[in-house]
């Protein structure tokens, strides 16, 4: 099955139909998506500001990684579910929208980067990681997550 036929199948599903028929379902799901955005932003920033030396300073980065991880994972789950529902309701339109693909690729890169490179830098013994590496990883993480957000906002302009 091609990607486009999968997207078409999504859009023709009864779930997608229900979201399109409802007056308030789409804005309600969008609101949940926005609330998830705030939580993801907070969790990502608390850790990255620490790595940049611009936020909470006296706690080890490893501790902040462990403290924020459940909120990051939880909000990611909320985003994927609410985003998935928004996607189904207009899947074919999104297939032809470049912003959607920019967002999906950024999301994949940001997630993989966070749970590999950033995780490693955050959990590493501070005496073995150069501060410059911490700052580079945090900057890359913020840029990648920003791309996801900007891509998402861009989807709205069509």
């Amino acid at each position: 099955m091609s990607v486009l036929s999968f997207f078409t199948w999504c859009e023709n599903s009864s779930l997608a139909e229900a979201i399109r028929q409802s007056r308030w379902l789409f804005p309600a799901i969008e609101s949940v998506h926005l609330l998830g955005l705030a939580v993801i932003g907070g969790a990502v920033l608390v850790l990255n500001l620490r790595l940049l030396g611009l936020g909470i300073k006296r706690q080890p980065a490893a501790q902040l990684w462990r403290d924020t991880r459940p909120w990051l994972l939880g909000s990611l789950a909320v985003m994927l579910i609410s985003g998935g529902l928004l996607f189904t309701s207009e899947a074919v339109k999104l297939y032809y929208h470049e912003a959607f693909w920019v967002k999906m690729i950024s999301l994949l890169l940001a997630t993989v980067f966070t749970f590999t490179v950033l995780r490693k830098v955050a959990l590493a013994d501070p005496s073995h990681v150069r501060p410059l590496w911490c700052k580079a990883a945090a900057t890359a993480s913020i840029l990648l997550w920003s791309m996801v957000g900007i891509g998402g906002r861009w989807i709205g302009f069509s």
């Binding site: 955005l37 705030a38 939580v39 993801i40 932003g41 907070g42 969790a43 990502v44 920033l45 608390v46 924020t68 909120w71 997550w145 957000g149």
Partner: peptide
Amino acid sequence: CVFLGLTLM
């Protein structure tokens, strides 16, 4: 993300 995200934290 910045304002509300950190306020929520």
